[in-house]
Design a binder for these strands. Structure first.
Length: 267
DNA sequence: AATCACACCAACCGCGTACAA
DNA sequence: CTTGTACGCGGTTGGTGTGAT
């Protein structure tokens, strides 16, 4: 299937944004809200493609952005989240209030990588550099697809790394009813559970389709992996809290409807 | 003062996915 | 079910700033 360009490239400005362009974009979004990025530039009087407008807004102009240096706590949270999620910058950014995926990605590449190397830790595997040379047997690296048994013992499915967030909670639910009284599990538990969840690779790919129930306040939604239907419910505790990094700068720590967890297969 | 090397980060590009027709 | 389109994400690039020589 051919792919049309995101916008007509001719007569489009490129490169750094001017103050005037910023003002036009901010004024337009204040008045009309975010969205419809394709039609926004024309409506706002900008000679930019929609993608460029979206990026400028998301990474620079959004009023809720936190400017300035990363704190030590943010550093450690990023490292922790990266060890669990890999290069899923948007997921990581979602757990650091006021930070963008682009900002975190840049910060990772310019600061944290070096910081970890100076500690003797491989930034890709989060293992000691000596140990990283040894191929792991039944463990996984953050970017490696992980197998989770969602559909039965003979029908394992490939789940992308971001789903590890959900799967930890699923594992917690299914296997860890005997976890600590606070409902939290230690990082060691998580590593162990991930290892137990690894299975043989499959080439089948699944497209997840979710359908939010009509009531937006509902904590339930349905989802589909391939032909399998699932019901999901909201988790009460976000990942930061679960990994022992509860912090007030994370909006998900403050808001209870952090994420969904796989609850049960309903078909 | 000029030049170079490096660090930083805003912006671009291409691809995958969601969704509507 | 197929197709077309828009959006969002992650990798990469290139301009700018800064320190060293």
């Amino acid at each position: 299937m051919g792919r049309s360009p995101c916008c007509e490239k001719a007569h489009m400005n490129k490169g750094a944004w001017t103050k005037e362009e910023d003002q036009l974009l901010v004024d337009y979004i204040r008045k009309h809200g975010e969205g419809c990025w394709r039609s926004l530039p024309r409506a706002a009087g900008l000679q930019r493609c929609g993608k460029s407008c979206r990026l400028r807004w998301m990474n620079y102009l959004r009023p809720d952005l936190k400017r300035g240096n990363f704190t030590e706590e943010e550093d450690e949270l990023i490292i922790k989240l990266h060890s669990l999620l890999g290069n899923k910058w948007s997921l990581i950014a979602g757990r650091l209030a006021g930070r963008t995926d682009n900002e975190i990605k840049n910060y990772w590449n310019t600061h944290i990588k070096r910081k970890l190397l100076s500690r003797g830790i491989d930034p890709n595997t989060h293992r000691p550099i000596n140990e990283s040379a040894i191929p792991p047997s039944k463990t996984t690296t953050p970017n490696e697809p992980v197998q989770f048994d969602l559909a039965g013992p003979d029908q394992q499915q490939t789940v992308k790394p971001e789903s590890m967030v959900l799967d930890r909670e699923e594992v917690d639910n299914n296997n860890n009813n005997n976890s600590t009284s606070s409902g939290m599990t230690s990082d060691e538990d998580f590593v162990l559970n991930l290892e137990l969840s690894v299975g043989p690779a499959t080439t089948r790919s699944y497209r997840y389709e979710s359908t939010r129930k009509a009531n937006p306040d509902s904590v339930e939604s349905t989802g589909r992996w391939g032909s399998e239907l699932f019901r999901t419910t909201q988790a009460e505790v976000c990942l930061c809290c679960r990994i022992g990094f509860h912090n007030e700068s994370c909006r998900n720590c403050r808001v209870s409807d952090a994420r969904t967890i796989w609850e049960s297969k309903i078909l």
